[in-house]
């Protein structure tokens, strides 16, 4: 199974219409990857669908970089008993 990081990058690339190779862990979703506010919401929804988890909106939307998204999603998966 692909890693959490691979899956986060794949979802981010699809939603923001980027090439996966363009996405770096340290990059900020809005400042570096160009995510607009609606796309941030789409990213949250797509991460939830990809991992089968429910994320609290405020916490999820406070995640700003790809690396912190990987960390946050890993934590939520653990809390909700989702194997990754």
């Amino acid at each position: 199974m692909p890693s959490v990081q691979d899956r986060v990058v794949a979802v981010t690339a699809r939603v923001l219409q980027l090439d996966e190779s363009e996405i770096k862990l340290e990059q900020n979703f809005s400042a570096d990857l160009g995510a607009e506010s609606v796309q941030s919401i789409e990213l949250v929804a797509n991460f939830e669908e990809e991992f089968g988890i429910e994320m609290e909106e405020d916490a999820a939307l406070s995640v700003d970089t790809v690396a912190s998204a990987v960390e946050f999603i890993t934590k939520v998966c653990e809390e909700q008993g989702v194997a990754v």
Partner: peptide
């Protein structure tokens, strides 16, 4: 509901 892009989303939440 935050109804965006034709679907119901959580949007930016109730706060």
């Amino acid at each position: 509901a935050w109804f965006l892009e034709g679907v119901v989303t959580k949007g930016f939440g109730k706060r």
